[in-house]
């Protein structure tokens, strides 16, 4: 495993670790963004800044509004109020595909593999600025052939990284659930985004591969990409995140470096639970602690 990258040299926040603390170099700024479904306030974020060039984790209980916030930030849903910007550009009213073209690319919690396209075609679709995607040049192959070959080479590189290269010519429909997650993430990387937003990228991915992909994500950061990801796996969060934002019931309830956030009583209460770090068997009572078994005695 790579050395913990939590100790980022440069400063991230400009003040104490409180919800909405301003960042030194924010790539996303959201102000008073709200979204309600009927009477339910799914997202109610007063102020949130996401720092550029680091890995930010977004955590919180089921139904906290993480995915909804992703949808709002990426233009897939529009808020009932508020304003938000990406890289200095206000995003209100900008359609999702333009947001993506600006360099903010997201993946979905419920994977969206394009089933009846091959894995390689899925990947190539992710590349930006393809001249062959314009109607008129598309029927003139010599205008796009070279670019397409370059894109293919890049796609094969990434596929190898994600252990999918042997599947390149198979329909994406034939992939397993975890492989689809991987494909979606790899596909998003094809566009060299400046910010990649991953909604539970490692759900269902085996531990060995998770480890190598985490290295890859850390690598991406080194090359200047910002990463925002949702994840329930606290090990992964503390392992690679430089900063953690905690949501509960639509609000940002805490943020800070992972080590600090995990000790925050509010976070433990709302999300982690008091048995954090203890064996689940102990919590559910299936395994007796040694001292308890002595005092109770076994039947």
């Amino acid at each position: 495993m790579p050395a913990s990258s939590n100790e980022t040299k440069s400063k991230i926040a400009t003040g104490p670790n409180a919800p909405g603390v301003p960042k030194t170099d924010p790539i996303i700024i959201a102000d008073n963004v709200t979204r309600h479904f009927g009477g339910l306030m799914a997202v109610d974020v007063e102020h949130l800044e996401i720092q550029r060039g680091i890995i930010t984790a977004l955590i919180g209980p089921n139904g906290a509004g993480k995915t909804t916030l992703f949808n709002l930030l990426s233009g897939f849903d529009s808020p009932n109020s508020g304003k938000w910007s990406f890289d200095g550009t206000a995003l209100a009213g900008i359609p999702s595909f333009k947001v993506s073209q600006m360099g903010q690319v997201r993946t979905f919690q419920l994977t969206k593999a394009l089933s009846m396209l091959s894995v390689l075609e899925n990947m190539k679709l992710g590349a930006k600025g393809q001249s062959g995607e314009r109607l008129w040049s598309s029927i003139l192959p010599w205008t796009w052939r070279k670019q397409d070959d370059e894109i293919e080479a890049k796609a094969m590189d990434l596929l190898a990284r994600f252990k999918l290269d042997t599947k390149a010519d198979d329909f994406a429909a034939s992939l397993s659930g975890g492989q689809r997650k991987l494909l979606e993430m790899a596909r998003a990387l094809m566009s060299d985004p400046s910010l990649i937003m991953l909604d539970e990228p490692m759900a269902g991915v085996n531990p060995a591969l998770t480890e190598s992909l985490l290295e890859h994500i850390v690598d991406l950061k080194k090359h200047g990409m910002s990463v925002l990801f949702v994840e329930h796996d606290m090990q992964m969060v503390s392992h690679i995140a430089d900063w953690v934002v905690v949501m509960a019931e639509g609000k940002v309830v805490a943020e800070g470096p992972p080590s600090a956030v995990m000790k925050d009583p509010a976070v433990i209460d709302a999300y982690l639970g008091s048995h954090q770090g203890t064996d689940l068997g102990v919590v559910t009572g299936r395994i007796d602690l040694p001292d308890l078994s002595k005092s109770k005695g076994s039947k």
Partner: peptide
Amino acid sequence: SPWGRVLRGIREDEDAVRALG
């Protein structure tokens, strides 16, 4: 062509294609 690739992608899942810009 890549144009056809996008179109077939839309057939499969248009939100995914939107997310790719």
